[in-house]
């Protein structure tokens, strides 16, 4: 099953991945990272289709996609 993970260490909470995801399964976490950003997270892994649009658009290379 596809899996998308955000590394909170790199994420700056810009929201570009959220806008890019065709399945709308990414949101900002309630938690914040060290830099104080609400980092992105995938909250419905089971719906992920591994299209990599999130990875493609992330300017901080914070995303890993597995299949």
């Amino acid at each position: 099953m596809p899996k998308m993970t955000v590394d909170p260490y790199y994420c700056k909470g810009c929201g570009l991945c959220i806008a890019a995801c065709p399945k709308k399964i990414i949101r900002f976490s309630e938690n914040i990272n060290e830099k104080g950003y609400h980092y992105a997270e995938c909250y419905k892994q089971e719906e992920c289709i591994a299209c990599k649009m999130c990875y493609m658009t992330c300017p901080d290379v914070a995303i890993k996609v597995e299949k």
Partner: peptide, 29 residues
């Protein structure tokens, strides 16, 4: 499971210093 997208090894581990959402990061990647 196979990793199909990840940080390339040609980038160091240092986080970019760009503002959130700045596309310099995309160009780098």
């Amino acid at each position: 499971m196979e990793v199909i997208a990840r940080r390339p090894e040609t980038l160091t581990k240092t986080p970019f210093t760009y503002c959130p959402g700045c596309l310099h990061g995309v160009a780098h990647r």
